[in-house]
Design a protein around this nucleic acid. Structure first.
Lengths: 188, 188
DNA sequence: TGTGCATGTGAGTACTCAATCAGTCACACC
DNA sequence: GGTGTGACTGATTGAGTACTCACATGCACA
């Protein structure tokens, strides 16, 4: 009925990281308001009570998850930019876009960004995290690619289009309108 | 303590329309999971119980609100297209983009679309409504503008970028990264 | 071997939510 | 004035919800 493997304690810091990693999957489906702290706890394999020892409340937990995602996205773009170093802006941006497409082939990272955007409307701490996340992302892409204002803007506009496609599962529908929206967008 | 203005009855159909109109404002702030049926009822000036006589449940209420928004967006694009009839695809698309910008200068319509996108991930009925909404929108824009696949795609990508800008309030922040994202996007 | 402390939990509390239902009230028509 | 029908509500329910707290348990080190 119940495993007798002796309990293996982690440091609080390790546990916090586990929670950040696993909570992505929990929040990805139903967002900030739709996900319970009990679900987050279950995904991390700890009790719901202990979530509140690791994070002060649900909002700051979600903020930490959102920041964690932005860090991963940035790291992925940095790797891509490093590989394409010295190329034209177009080449670097394409490499970054491709790296992003690979990163989010597991949709959770992208869904968190979508849900963070939605929660940002009413939750000030989330809004601040999203602002900072995109601020750094935009500045990094600008610096690393050397692209024009318009190119940078298009880069992010296409990213947002990806959010739409994934959230409504447009890639599972065969129709002219889905082909129009998804044209030229890499998918892994 | 309590207004004695005699109760004025409406038909159920009128009330349903009132609810659809006022619920937009209620759902705009906190989305599907974050908004209670009591808040929707208050915005419409009716009791929470009566919401359930007008709509079978919360999900279908939200779906009706989302569909109502898509109808409004489409109507707005149709008006713009009619005025720019006979122009080049660029001219028609610009007119449509401008009409959209005007329509959503009250942010609620756009926020509903964002929240609908988020809820579409986990609520099948919402997903279906969002798919149908964009399907019709894409086909309408294609037909009315005669633009290329790429132009249509860009039109919607820019629309999604608007969602990002509004949701995080990027237009209230003065910084290079916000100027890059918002460049050339009309704002009323 | 014991003891101090960080890791971790069971069992709550106080509250909110969607959904229900019995029943009241307005009004059109006789 | 009476009556049938549809509009509308107060009160309630049962299933959660975020968050708390008293207590248990593993482990490093004296």
């Amino acid at each position: 009925m119940h495993k007798d493997r002796p309990r293996q304690l982690s440091t609080a810091e390790e546990r916090r990281e586990t929670v950040l990693r696993t909570a992505i999957g929990a929040f990805a489906a139903r967002g900030y308001f739709g996900t319970t702290t009990a679900e987050v706890a279950k995904a991390a394999g700890i009790s719901q009570a202990y979530v509140y020892r690791l994070f002060p409340n649900k909002e700051l937990l979600f903020v930490a998850v959102v920041e964690h995602c932005f860090v991963q996205v940035r790291a992925s773009l940095e790797r891509a930019a490093a590989e394409a170093r010295g190329g034209s802006p177009e080449v670097v941006l394409t490499a970054m876009g491709d790296a992003y497409a690979k990163l989010i082939s597991n949709n959770d990272l992208m869904l968190i960004q979508l849900h963070a955007q939605a929660a940002a409307v009413s939750e000030p701490a989330v809004r601040e995290a999203v602002r900072q996340g995109y601020a750094r992302l935009v500045e990094y892409v600008r610096g690393a690619s050397g692209g024009s204002e318009e190119q940078i803007q298009t880069f992010f506009a296409v990213g947002m289009l990806c959010h739409l496609i994934v959230s409504m599962g447009a890639d599972e529908v065969e129709a002219p309108w889905t082909r129009t929206l998804t044209a030229g967008i890499t998918h892994y």
